[in-house]
Amino acid sequence: MSLRAMSPLRLRWLSVPACLLLAMPFLALLQQTPWRSFSIAPADLSSVRVSLGLGLAALLLIAALGTPLALWLARSRSRARGLVQTLVLASLLTPPLAMGILLVSAYGPYSTVGGPLAAAGYLISNNAGAFLLAQLYGGLAYFVLSARTAFEGVPRSAEEAAETMGATGWQVFRLVTLPLAARGVLAGLALAWVRVIGEFGIVMTFAYFPQGMPVQLYINLQNDGVDSVYSLVWLLLAASLPFPLWILARRRPDLPHG
């Protein structure tokens, strides 16, 4: 059965089960939220500040570190490419809880990396640095894979044309490659943002402090029960949804016609 055989009407009906499935939790949220006693506590607000502030910093770091890697993966023909690709995928596939445990072993105060840093007076543990690192591991691989696909879609001929006109490597990237790949790269950022904000497994094991929204959700459940979770879920959605929505809404479907 080819896609062409699917009339739009038929497709629409076939989409209903998935939509219902996706909507169900939010219908429950609407129904269960105690609207009369809806309250946002100071601890909730502070967790929003932590998540958004450090999340934004992590996103900038992800873009700065991930873009060169994504571009190289898209362009390189070297043998190392396959290896690096595997590494990125491995990072993506490692379950967050396992990643958190591995980070404890890699960056803890008695580890090869963490030891010298701790001796120099900076301990990567329960502080902004540890939190950033946890978020970085949560989002980097998602961004790299998404940006790589975007860079692969940029025709080499466009870049070569710019080069023959005397543009430097940086100019080619800034004026030709990046604008042509912008949609995919931004989608990668949106995906990384979603991962960074919602990250729980890595953060819970590796950076319990400062407490962002997911850890605060866990604490609210322990201390105040489910009702206090609902208000923070609203806050979490309100704070983190606009950015990916804005970016993904800008992506016009550019499917080939015919």
Binding site: I101, V104, G108, Y110, L123, S125, M204, Y208, V215
Partner: peptide, 17 residues
């Protein structure tokens, strides 16, 4: 400097951190 999530505490202790 001392307070960790419940699962994390045992992990850190066993991992020697």
């Amino acid at each position: 400097q001392q307070v960790f999530g419940e699962g994390s505490l045992l992990t850190r202790l066993q991992a020697g951190q």
